[in-house]
């Protein structure tokens, strides 16, 4: 009888990968966006399995709540929902698929042949306080710079969307 975490991993992995496949294969942009939503949700669940509770939360709140909403806005503003089919020439799918498969094979090869840095995983430790401490001590610089990045993004977005 497999463990519960094993079962959960497979469920969420299949959700993640399955929806990701839909993201890249469907012709409807809206479907893609919704599938991406599900896929990202699956990843958030995987994060939980990896004991990254804070990150799972961030994933749901920021990624799904923020980025996806932005993307869906973008779709709605740039396409009429009724004819959201994308024009593509079918030819480009095949070489792309071959290329990607090749990359995938190489990746898997490297991932499985490399001896990764592995130790016994730390079990059941709360990460939020550690992250909080790190952000205000050794990671204080990235933390501050990130704020500048957001400021720049803000300025840029305003600049682009301002009326003449």
């Amino acid at each position: 009888m497999p463990e519960l975490t094993t079962i959960l991993f497979y469920i969420f992995a299949f959700i993640t990968v399955g929806f990701a496949i839909i993201v890249v294969s469907t012709k409807n942009v809206m479907y893609s966006a919704v599938s991406l939503f599900m896929s990202l949700f699956g990843i958030a669940a995987l994060f939980l399995l990896l004991r990254a509770d804070f990150l799972a939360l961030t994933q749901v709140m920021v990624y799904i709540g923020g980025i996806l909403v932005l993307l869906i806005f973008g779709i709605m503003l740039t396409t009429k929902i009724t004819d959201a089919e994308i024009k593509t020439n079918n030819l480009s799918y095949i070489p792309a698929a071959f290329f990607t498969t090749g990359i995938f094979v190489i990746l898997i090869f490297v991932l499985y042949t490399t001896k990764w840095n592995q130790k016994t995983p730390i079990q059941n430790e709360e990460t939020i306080s550690q992250i909080g401490k790190a952000l205000l001590s050794s990671y204080v610089l990235p933390f501050e710079i990130a704020s500048i990045v957001l400021l720049v993004a803000l300025v840029g977005a305003i600049m682009f969307s301002r009326k003449k």
Partner: peptide, 24 residues
Amino acid sequence: LLMMYLSLELASLTSYILAGYSKS
């Protein structure tokens, strides 16, 4: 590595905006 990625992105994001400066 984190700082490298972060600073690279800061520079990149800014350049995207600058490249589209004449937005019309």
